[in-house]
């Protein structure tokens, strides 16, 4: 009902970024990349090496902020999905699409950096720990989300279907977490050396906070760039139709 009326208003949105199309570099992205690079330099050369874990602990400054960004990204997918079904605004769908894609990238970073740390510290690449399993399933759910988007031609249908999946996916997360948590505690793993979060020394804490800030900035920059791509693609498709 709402969709068909929106459909006829092509292009769907009044190109707010038209002026930047084909313009100079994306300064926000450049700033974010510099911030991340600066954080990594600080993490590698100017933050003390952890006494027990050695240099392997440095991966923490990539792993933890990536996990935070992934959760943030999927939270935004769920929020914009709910709002889309309510308001039927194209821009919300474009944000959901962009956030899901950026979220999957950061989840991939989490899933790759985790085992790299796990091998020297836990003695194994992978363990079916509750958090690891949940992250893996997040990756599956949102990969499915992206595949679903790619498999639907109709723009309005794509937006509605992915909003439904974005909401159901968010509902699923507590259930997966609960069942894998119960699964793990009933079958304790032999090598789960989980230190109960030691309070970090000042230098390390600063680096960690910086990495959270710079990764969040990187997320915003990537989201913005991807969002522009989505809106420009919609405009092109709208032009094709007319």
């Amino acid at each position: 009902m709402n969709d068909s009326t929106l459909h006829s208003h092509a292009p769907p949105i009044a190109a707010p970024h038209a002026g930047t199309r084909g313009g100079g570099p994306d300064w926000l992205f450049v700033a974010a990349a510099l911030a991340v690079a600066g954080t990594l330099v600080r993490a590698i050369w100017f933050t003390p090496i952890e006494a027990i874990q050695g240099p392997a602990q440095k991966i923490f400054y990539v792993h933890a902020p990536s996990a935070w960004v992934a959760f943030l990204a999927f939270g935004i997918v769920a929020l914009t999905s709910i709002l889309y079904l309510w308001l039927k605004d194209w821009r919300l769908d474009c944000v959901a699409e962009s956030s899901a894609e950026v979220g999957v990238v950061f989840t991939t970073v989490v899933l790759i950096s985790g085992p790299l740390w796990g091998k020297p510290i836990w003695g194994t690449w992978w363990t079916w720990d509750a958090r690891l399993t949940l992250t893996l399933f997040l990756w599956f759910i949102y990969m499915g989300y992206l595949v679903l988007r790619g498999a639907i031609e109709d723009r309005a249908m794509r937006a509605r279907y992915s909003a439904v999946l974005g909401i159901l996916g968010a509902l699923l997360i507590p259930f997966i977490h609960l069942s894998v948590y119960l699964f793990r505690t009933l079958h304790p793993m032999p090598i789960v050396l989980k230190p109960s979060a030691p309070s970090l020394p000042g230098d390390m804490l600063t680096t960690l906070l910086l990495s959270f800030a710079s990764f969040t900035l990187l997320y915003i920059a990537l989201l913005r760039a991807r969002y522009r791509l989505a809106t420009e693609r919609d405009e092109l498709e709208a032009e094709d139709r007319t």
Partner: peptide, 9 residues
């Protein structure tokens, strides 16, 4: 692909 993650719980 969509259903299987939902069948885990």
């Amino acid at each position: 692909m969509l259903s299987l993650p939902f069948f885990v719980p």
